[in-house]
């Protein structure tokens, strides 16, 4: 459904993403992991039109979307959330979500009603009339997801929606993401919380220093020495192997 092919993105002399490819099948949950600064968010931004890739192509739903504007890509059903949450601070939670709903729903009352339904689905029913600026971090992360879902996306890109949440909050959000997929929306997520990645995803891509270094099922990827090294530093895999041997 979504395919990035050999995407490269440079900022000045710095190569943030180098020749990275990934593929997301319709109806699946795929995770993109990697250490901080690996270029995950940049790759998201390059796929959703926020950065124009220097080379490579992005295909979505059978069409080439490389270099399209963010709103055009969103209209095609590929919607992202932001790692650094971006609420419409002065608007209420309901109004925030309604902005997403308006993508497919011109009627104001219907959009507000839909916003209410989605908020309830995400456990935000009691915050509907609160200004978004007053939400906690967990609330804002959820609002990101709610707004994106309200656009009825075909594929949703979730950028670290669990970062900064406590274990209880993570346990709450995992079934929500699964439910999103079960309702027909494909999911690609960037995540650091490995527990959630292992539980949720069917396929995992690992990005390190801008390069895709591994892909496979969560179990396969976790066993790969280069992945362990990417997270723990050079030589770590060997040391672990020698210790356990």
């Amino acid at each position: 459904m979504l395919e990035a092919r050999n995407v490269t993105k440079r900022f000045g002399g710095l190569v943030a993403v180098s020749n990275a490819s990934l593929e997301v099948a319709a109806g699946s949950i795929v995770a993109l992991i990697g250490p901080n600064g690996a270029g995950k968010t940049t790759l998201f931004a390059a796929m959703t039109g926020f950065h124009k890739p220097d080379s490579g192509s992005v295909t979505f739903d059978g069409a080439d979307i490389t270099g399209l504007q963010p709103h055009e890509i969103a209209r095609r059903g590929l919607v992202r959330t932001f790692q650094i949450v971006q609420p419409f601070g002065a608007l209420s939670v309901r109004e925030n979500i309604a902005v997403g709903a308006h993508l497919r729903e011109p009627n104001r009352a219907a959009a507000l009603a839909r916003a209410g339904e989605i908020a309830i689905r995400l456990g935000m029913g009691n915050m509907l009339d609160q200004p978004a600026a007053t939400l906690t971090v967990a609330g804002r992360k959820r609002l990101e997801v709610a707004r994106a879902l309200a656009t009825s996306p075909k594929l949703i890109l979730l950028d670290e929606v669990m970062a900064g949440l406590n274990p209880t909050e993570i346990d709450e959000i995992v079934p929500i993401i699964r439910a999103v997929r079960d309702a027909g929306t494909t999911v690609l997520l960037i995540e650091h919380v490995m527990r959630a990645v292992m539980r949720l995803s069917e396929r995992v891509y690992v990005l390190n220093q801008g390069r895709m270094i591994a892909e496979g099922t969560p179990q396969e990827v976790a066993a790969r020495p280069e992945v362990v090294e990417a997270y723990l530093g050079h030589g770590a895999a060997q040391r672990i192997a020698s210790v356990s041997a």
Binding site: F50, P70, H71, R80, A90, V99, G100, T151
Partner: peptide
Amino acid sequence: MAVRENEAAAAALG
């Protein structure tokens, strides 16, 4: 109003 509050977030929502 969404654009006023945050243009990038609004664009991400189409």
